[in-house]
């Protein structure tokens, strides 16, 4: 068997189709983006080598990019400090076994399967200044003349994208947490209960440490998902008004495909790549220790 599974020809036949497609159409373009980011290039003329100038410009002369970075961190913060705790709370209730456990689990996940385009259009209509649901409700209970343009006001525009983003993926993280909690052997919790541990102690001292791998996955998904956010914001505000709700994804998309700034846009794109890889690395490192501790329990 070992001889069969070690034969080079077979290995090549099995691995190469996927590897070639992936390297040619994902990894290679990524590297080319990295190369473009060092040049001034409009796609037609000659490429002028700039070194790291594009990256320096990102942080010194580009106001919009700083807004975009701040926004993506707000999104990440909302995801980690609002969405994940809600998801965890729901998962821990459902995993404990309540009436309708399966029903709730199924319902909470539904927004995840709906396309961002539809979710975006729906929330746009909720926030619509004249006929939107939010303003209609405010008119019922408060000022009957109330009108406010949530989408066109710079200070509120970005939050009209954060709310649906947090809302849409609550069910996704809930399910991952749920799965993690269910995989904890019940004897552990039982033993702790018999030893007189309180519910709170069981959660913080036993459940959360044992859930370290699951928490890691959720953090990774939330963080990288926030850094590369695009669809919802593109649909709801398109980065506006006046670039107030821009995230790096929407900004670079405009630079690349509307303004033809191939070099500069590529620098913005490659910055997100570095950001994602760096944060993934840091999270993995941080959790390595936590997981070792958990396995010692």
């Amino acid at each position: 068997m070992d001889r069969m599974l070690g034969r080079k020809r077979y290995i090549a036949v099995f691995i190469l189709p996927a590897l070639l497609v992936f390297v040619l159409f994902t990894i290679a373009p990524l590297i080319v983006t990295g190369i473009y980011s060092l040049f001034e290039y409009d796609g037609i003329g000659t490429m002028k080598f700039l070194g790291l100038k594009n990256y320096i410009d990102l942080f010194t002369t580009d106001k919009h990019f700083l807004t975009a970075i701040v926004n993506s961190f707000i999104l990440a913060g909302a995801s980690i400090f609002i969405q994940l705790p809600i998801s965890f709370f729901l998962a821990s209730i459902l995993a404990r076994g309540v009436k309708g456990e399966k029903f709730f689990r199924t319902i909470y996940f539904i927004p995840v399967v709906i396309s961002s385009m539809v979710i975006g259009q729906l929330w746009m209509k909720i926030f619509n200044s004249q006929y939107g649901l939010l303003n209609t409700i405010i008119r019922w209970f408060g000022d009957p003349e109330f009108e406010f343009s949530w989408l066109a006001t710079p200070s509120t525009a970005f939050f009209t994208t954060v709310i649906p983003a947090v809302w849409q993926y609550v069910g996704y993280h809930m399910l991952i947490f749920y799965a993690g909690i269910k995989s904890i052997p019940p004897d552990y919790l039982e033993a702790a209960r018999i030893d007189g541990a309180s519910k709170r102690q069981i959660t913080t001292k036993i459940m959360i440490p044992l859930l370290a791998p699951v928490i890691k996955i959720c953090l990774l998904f939330s963080l990288t998902g926030s850094f590369r956010a695009f669809d919802l914001i593109y649909v709801i505000t398109g980065g506006g008004p006046n670039h107030a709700s821009e995230v790096p994804g929407t900004l670079l998309y405009n630079n690349l495909f509307r303004r033809g700034l191939y070099g500069y846009g590529s620098a913005q794109a490659f910055f997100i790549v570095i950001e994602c890889l760096l944060f993934s690395f840091v999270i993995r490192r941080l959790f390595k220790k936590a997981e070792e501790n958990a396995s010692a329990v």
């Binding site: 992936f22 990524l30 994804g249 670079l252 997100i272 790549v273």
Partner: peptide
Amino acid sequence: VYGIFTIGIMIPAQAALLPLFQL
């Protein structure tokens, strides 16, 4: 090789879009 594939989960699709378009 497995490591290369796992990178694919973290990277933003936008970052490959332009060269992919040209290719």
